[in-house]
């Protein structure tokens, strides 16, 4: 039932769950808001005091849905859609695989998954430069699309 490759804290017991239920309620309200007003909500899990095991509890309850994306930028990041559509878990790790931040995003698509304009401009420049020089065109097929 657990999500993969998520670092779990040591489970001490589950009698400390005074923040779990309110948080899940907040997620529900955020989902309402997303459906009605198309507004995105991001919850920073680090900003909420959680006992060891509680974060896992939250992740377990939300579960894993259909999408799991991995991002390689300054270490790994993991973007998972939970079994509740529109509720995403975004976890950022550094290149030592230590967790740097974890967010619950209530959105149709987390921003970080979208290609960024600046990156696209850079990509286009890079590609056109490659084309101009004419090198490696034959060896490698076009891998990057605009």
């Amino acid at each position: 039932m657990t999500t993969h490759s998520v670092q779990f804290n040591i489970q001490i017991g589950d009698d400390l769950t005074w923040n779990v239920a309110p948080l899940l309620h907040e997620v529900k309200h955020a989902l309402d808001n997303l459906i009605k007003n198309n507004e995105t909500t991001i919850i920073d899990l680090r900003s909420i005091p959680l006992a060891p095991g509680e974060e896992d509890k939250i992740l377990n309850i939300l579960g894993q849905g259909e999408i799991k994306a991995q991002l390689y930028a300054l270490g790994q990041s993991e973007i998972i859609e939970t079994q509740y559509a529109g509720v995403w878990i975004v976890s950022h790790y550094n290149d030592e695989n230590e967790i740097m931040g974890r967010f619950i995003e209530i959105t149709s698509m987390p921003d970080i998954l979208c290609s960024q304009t600046e990156d696209m401009i850079e990509a286009r420049n890079h590609l056109s430069e490659s084309l101009k020089e004419g090198q490696n065109i034959h060896e490698s097929s076009v891998e990057k699309s605009a």
Partner: peptide, 9 residues
């Protein structure tokens, strides 16, 4: 550093 990395940062 990609823009995406920057956003993550």
């Amino acid at each position: 550093i990609s823009r995406r990395s920057f956003l993550k940062f």
